[in-house]
């Protein structure tokens, strides 16, 4: 039972188990894994706190109603599950800046905060523009053999690889 406390499992074991969980979700909930729509719904809830009508009159929020649903519980569950795993394996710690970033880019938290904020905005806009993220397109849509998902998944990595090399050099 030592594997319960191990910080890292084989990526193949992890991938296979994620595949099984994805199938389970499709069977019991008719829902494949996906995360970006939940961020959209949260944004709608926040805007709604200030101006309800702006949300109610928005076509995109009409299609994706800002309410607590399966997907939001999924994202909340991811936070909880990762926390559990990190605590059990002794890997939980509050860390401000990822080691690679602080060694190569900047050890100033403000710089990392702005990088993460701008990166997050691009992720948010891009995921909704493409209709999904690394989970929704990259794992679920590709497994369902959607052409749009395969193209999106390749574009995610092409954009990501170019950006990472621009930041870290070759």
């Amino acid at each position: 039972m030592d594997f319960i406390f191990e910080q890292r499992w084989s990526p193949y074991a992890v991938g296979a188990l994620i595949g099984l969980i994805n199938l389970l979700g499709m069977l019991i909930s008719n829902k494949p894994l996906g995360a970006s729509t939940s961020f959209l719904k949260l944004s709608g809830m926040i805007v709604g706190l200030f101006d309800k009508n702006r949300v109610l009159s928005n076509d995109y929020y009409k299609k994706n109603k800002p309410e607590i649903d399966w997907g939001m519980m999924l994202v909340f569950g991811i936070i909880l599950g990762a926390f559990l795993s990190a605590v059990i394996s002794g890997d939980f710690r509050l860390m401000k800046i990822p080691p690679m970033w602080s060694d190569n880019v900047s050890s100033n938290f403000i710089v990392r905060f702005i990088g993460a904020l701008v990166g997050g905005i691009f992720l948010g806009v891009g995921s909704r523009w493409a209709g999904g993220c690394t989970s929704g397109h990259g794992i679920s849509g590709t497994s369902q053999l959607s052409i749009l998902s395969w193209v999106a998944a390749v574009a995610f990595f092409v954009g990501g690889i170019i950006t990472a090399f621009l930041i870290y050099g070759i």
């Binding site: 894994l33 995360a35 970006s36 939940s38 961020f39 994202v75 909340f76 991811i78 936070i79 990762a82 990822p98 970033w101 990088g115 993460a116 701008v118 990166g119 997050g120 905005i121 691009f122 992720l123 948010g124 806009v125 891009g126 995921s127 909704r128 523009w129 493409a130 209709g131 993220c133 690394t134 989970s135 397109h137 749009l148 998902s149 193209v151 999106a152 998944a153 390749v154 574009a155 995610f156 990595f157 092409v158 954009g159 990501g160 690889i161 170019i162 950006t163 990472a164 621009l166 930041i167």
Partner: peptide, 23 residues
């Protein structure tokens, strides 16, 4: 998929997490 995917990619490279892994 191409335009949105590339925008996503820029964010992916800069943030270093995606919507699922950031959670």
């Amino acid at each position: 998929s191409i335009i949105g995917g590339l925008l996503f990619g820029v964010g992916f490279g800069l943030l270093g997490y995606c919507p699922g892994t950031i959670a």
